[in-house]
């Protein structure tokens, strides 16, 4: 091992300190979720799984979880289909107009969540979509589209334009070329886009707070209301389940890369 200078020590140790700051707070929900108390806090006399039992038996929590999952899947499917077609069309065109179209499609990233939610609320009232699953799906699809479009477009930048051209000159129609040549090349981007779209919908809270009332309840909304009203340790159990799933998925991802 080479002797290390202060410079190297600063950056190497510093980086791990910062990463600890990023990751460790995610883990605090774990001990809290096993608390034997009825309020948020570390376990007092022993560990208890009562808050997990509560989560997995409470109809409201389970219902909200299920709603979030199925809405997320529908949103991811819609956004992936629309966004992939969009990105592929723009990639073929690659002109000024399509470039403007791409800017239009990413506006949801830039507009503050509260502002867009006000817009949704007023328009959804007119359309009769307030407090409906359809209303949430539509809003989430719009919010997810930028991510799909960006990731599919990024996957296409490495595709040689001569390949679809060759397909066309050999007699394939535009649709056949898209389907048999471009879509396979864009696959990694499409997959990333789908996952992103699901997560965007699954985690979205501000829009849901504005456009739903009683009938539609998603997991983030239950967590939000739980934090606002009485801090119930069930939230810690839910959070732990989600964090553990995320950790497992990341670990699998790292393993597969190696």
């Amino acid at each position: 091992m080479m002797p290390r200078s202060t410079f190297q020590i600063f950056f190497q140790t510093g980086a791990w300190v910062v990463i600890a700051f990023l990751v460790l707070p995610l883990l605090v929900v774990l001990p809290i979720s096993f608390t034997d108390t009825s309020y948020i806090g570390l376990p007092k006399h022993g560990l208890s799984i009562q808050h997990y039992v509560n989560y997995f038996t409470d109809a409201a929590w389970l219902g909200a979880t299920w709603t979030s999952i199925w809405i997320g899947l529908v949103v991811a499917t819609c956004a992936t289909v629309l966004g992939t077609a969009f990105a592929i069309g723009c990639w073929f065109l690659s002109d000024r107009a399509s470039s403007i179209a791409r800017w239009v499609l990413i506006t949801p990233i830039l507009v503050p969540p509260v502002v867009q939610s006000l817009g949704f609320y007023r328009f959804w009232v007119v359309l009769g979509l307030i407090d409906t699953n359809m209303g949430v799906i539509l809003a989430h699809t719009l919010l997810a589209l930028p991510y799909v479009s960006i990731s599919v477009f990024a996957a296409l930048t490495n595709l040689d334009r001569n390949i679809p051209r060759a397909a066309r000159s050999l007699g394939a129609s535009v649709l056949q070329t898209v389907w048999a040549v471009v879509v396979p090349a864009a696959k990694p981007g499409i997959a990333t886009g789908f996952i992103f779209a699901f997560i965007v919908s699954f985690d979205e809270i501000v829009g849901v707070l504005f456009i739903t009332v009683r009938r539609v309840s998603t997991l983030p909304k239950m967590i939000w209301e739980g934090i606002q009203d009485n801090i119930d340790p069930t939230i810690a159990a839910v959070a732990t389940v989600l964090v553990v799933i995320t950790l497992a998925a990341t670990a699998i991802g790292v393993m597969r890369k190696k």
């Binding site: 995610l26 985690d203 809270i205 934090i227 959070a239 990341t250």
Partner: peptide, 11 residues
Amino acid sequence: WVSVLIRSFSW
């Protein structure tokens, strides 16, 4: 991948 809501709750 962990929602902002949960990260805020942790804090």
